[in-house]
Nucleic acid binder design. Structure first.
Lengths: 246, 246
DNA sequence: TATGGTTGTCTATATTAATAGACATTTGAG
DNA sequence: CTCAAATGTCTATTAATATAGACAACCATA
């Protein structure tokens, strides 16, 4: 590509070092430095982005903090981690299945659970009466020890009262549903947006401030078309992508 | 909700005023201020975010620059624009159709076109030989005068040689395909990611720095399953959402 | 028309981000 | 062993960001 200065914005509320860190993180995820396994030297990056070498160093320090690179004096800045998981979205979307063999170790953690009355919006989606009891689960999913999504999930309480315990034991929604007598379920709609990470994202997903999260709102029904689950999941945008196959 | 201080990060490369501007923009898009049509007073926002009033003013100035709000001395800060377009993604995904009646005025602009040899990646997706000629179109789509997407689209040149002219005249891929003898086509896969807006995004989509773009990579085939089009489209994340219906 | 609520403007100060240059330290290769 | 190529550290300076306080200007309405 062009070797000249490219694409950093000044004086716009996003520090240069953060813009550069984001760009390098993306380049790593895209495999642009796969041949060497190293990020280009600091002075080369400084020239490429048209900034001072110290500014590049700030960016690399941030990436080192995230565990993505490791700088070694005399050798260079080595790439430690490089991952973008692919999530297929289909009628049979399942988290664990979707990850497939992209990760060896899969984990589902229950952060919090509660029973509460359904809001108007939620009731409309689950086709229950507003104020009817629902179970809310806050979960965190990991692949190879790295957090890949944070979800808030609601179930009609009258039908899936034991969901909290079932999920805690299995760490899987699919398994929990089966335990509660629902053998199969279908994804009927998924809404996808993107936003900046909020405080909870930063903590749970181990992100750095300014990071982007992909937000997916999903509705699942049983095979008769009765809604069984509504979920809002947040994914680190630099680690995942969604694929829709028709 | 809670009235106390909430959720702004200090010293992390994203200026407070920008974080606050992003939060307010999202709140507006979510309809949180619909009752009054106004953003809360500056001092109230300052207290809510735990910052100085001047910092809030910087955030509001940025939103005014984007045309989202307008401050009137003595009255308050009025909401000028509030929109989030929904894009359904299905086997028959069509831009103009998808927008439907969400916008009155739809427009497709041709920014640039060229004929060039296919890269290895592109050739694999379009199932043609690497280096075979393809037509590349850079297009900008608008709804009600606001830019909503910026796309780079490739077509096999041997089959769709007249694409540039056909698109220029109609402003629609669907119509251009029909002109060239392709009555129907199908969306077979869509990949969705998110990233920060780059310089071209800022210019073409009229965004402010630090904004987020949703990136969709789509492959279309004819009814025989032969690839006819590969496109990479970028959407302002605070203006659009994707919906997948199964 | 008087008043309370709101945005606009000004001055001053402290902290953080970015630039600039010099030189030390470490590593890998010849 | 020596040298080139990296990263590490230090000092100094400028620009952008954030806080603080005071007061002016304006609008709606009671």
């Amino acid at each position: 590509m062009d070797t000249g200065q490219m694409n950093v914005q000044r004086q716009n509320g996003v520090a240069l070092w953060r813009q550069i860190a984001d760009r390098i993180r993306t380049s790593i995820a895209n495999g642009e430095y796969d041949e060497t396994g190293k990020v280009p030297p600091e002075f080369a990056l400084a020239e490429q982005f048209g900034v001072n070498r110290h500014t590049v160093r700030s960016a690399l320090a941030a990436l080192a903090q995230e565990g993505i690179v490791r700088s070694v004096q005399g050798r260079g800045t080595l790439i430690e981690r490089k991952d973008r998981l692919n999530f297929p979205i289909s009628q049979r979307t399942r988290f664990n299945q979707g990850i497939g063999d992209q990760a060896r170790e899969k984990e589902g953690l229950l952060l919090h659970s509660a029973e509460e009355p359904a809001t108007a919006d939620l009731a409309a989606r689950l086709k229950i009466k507003p104020g009817a009891p629902v179970i809310r689960l806050e979960t965190l999913r990991k692949a190879d020890r790295r957090p890949v999504s944070r979800s808030t999930t609601w179930f009609p309480a009258d039908r899936f009262g034991g969901m909290t315990e079932a999920y805690r034991q299995s760490g899987s929604i699919t398994v929990a549903f089966r335990t509660l007598g629902l053998a199969d379920y279908l994804r009927v709609s998924t809404e996808i947006t993107a936003t900046h990470a909020d405080n909870a994202d930063l903590a749970d997903l181990e992100l750095s401030p300014g990071a982007i999260v992909l937000v997916a709102k999903a509705l699942n029904t049983d095979t008769d078309g009765v809604p069984v689950q509504y979920a809002v999941s947040r994914f680190p945008a630099d680690m995942v992508q969604f694929t829709i196959e028709n």
